[in-house]
Design a protein around this nucleic acid. Sequence first.
DNA 1: CGGGAACTTGATCTCGGTCAATATTGGTGG
DNA 2: CCACCAATATTGACCGAGATCAAGTTCCCG
Lengths: 250, 250
Amino acid sequence: MSKGSKAASGRATRICGAWDVSALPCARCVGRHLNLCKPLDDKRLAQLLSFGGPRVWAKGATMFRAGEPIGPFFKIRFGIAAVFRILDDGRRQVVALRAPGDCLGYLEQDGAYSFEGQALTEVEACAFDRRQFDIFAAQKPDLAAATAEELSRALKRAGQAMVVLGQLKSTERVAHFLVEIDALYRERHVARTPLSLLMNRNQIADYLGLTVETVSRAFGKLREQAVIKLVGNDDVIILDHAKLRDIGKV
Amino acid sequence: MSKGSKAASGRATRICGAWDVSALPCARCVGRHLNLCKPLDDKRLAQLLSFGGPRVWAKGATMFRAGEPIGPFFKIRFGIAAVFRILDDGRRQVVALRAPGDCLGYLEQDGAYSFEGQALTEVEACAFDRRQFDIFAAQKPDLAAATAEELSRALKRAGQAMVVLGQLKSTERVAHFLVEIDALYRERHVARTPLSLLMNRNQIADYLGLTVETVSRAFGKLREQAVIKLVGNDDVIILDHAKLRDIGKV
DNA sequence: CGGGAACTTGATCTCGGTCAATATTGGTGG
DNA sequence: CCACCAATATTGACCGAGATCAAGTTCCCG
């Protein structure tokens, strides 16, 4: 599965922004710059790389923990990660899904990570020392602008997620979720047919503020309405995009 | 009420960040630079001001609408504003509360505002043309850094709000809300005793993803438990901060 | 004061949570 | 390749938190 998504990502010709880390050498090909889109020239790429090394996490691995002394932040090259928080009593809320091109572990509070990070698939990401990155960004206006742009994108997505959590009914939430990750995976070239959720029902439930059972029932309703078709546990075929978007209030 | 908060804000010696707009001349005192904290020197302040004028909205006024062609963004000097989205069927979710020092209307999508903005109290803010601001920021690394910092702060708050909406029970949400705005108003020098909510039950409900009745009942429960005391419709005295934080999972 | 808006309280209903019992699935080893 | 098994998903029965509908009550502003 993670192999599949990785292959799909590999075909990407452009992931995003002024600092496309897919352009950076990865563990298997140090010294070779793919440089698929070139807002950063080779010299600057090399400079960025000098303090940001590639790293790989297995599916399910913890990338960082809330409260843990702040370390590097990451920019995803392949795979999908979840950012979440756990309350003392075990309640858990996934706060964001992060795909190739997204940053992860950027937020900090009093010198500690603000949220938890976990790899949903195998994940490969570049690690950046934030102090050095900030210094570098201070001299590269377009990199700073790209950072602001990325944060804006994340903030917009968070706002939409708040609408989903605060106002939508369970089936609406699930419909919204499907449209959302379909668009996300497509945009980041993780897309395949059928759509692979890359999350189990539990993780989806924690993202949507529901329980596993409710998520399952919502999938059932959408299937009854012939809006989707379920294939195994992880794959979904969207039969009626328009109706799904309609239900999901997208 | 808005007059009170304004007076309180006026006493602030430092609001935040590298571009404290309270340092900019306001409508009533053009040409005079308060310059309370001085990360920007006078020349740069003047430059910023040349494309960002002060503006005032009455309590309840709409500052911008989602989908409306993008105009300036704003940085609040006095007052409190709400950022929200309305669904076709009238459901409404407040996505963020913005206090002095916060930016507002920054997010855009395809050349239109992403959310709606409304003044909860009388609001005074500086308007900035984003194109000119971006150009300016590109030459001022510390301003770009301050923008990223501000976005990070907003994103962190959004993440916490998602936990509230996704996981907390109604009373927990209201407790969390009280702690949150108490801290916010305090931090931005809007604070007074007793705590003024500056929002009616309907607005609180729309922020917490609840109904007016449920919010009212939650206030009732907190009052019964002697955690708070209600004074009129808009003021709250927090009797037991520790317990309130505990209930609100802060 | 007086009147309308905002808040509170009560009764009822519904959606989603909880608990429990199957049913699928997909990975593993024979 | 198939049979098995643990993990995951589905389904069902029931319950409860919060929504909805409907009165009251309080507040606040003229």
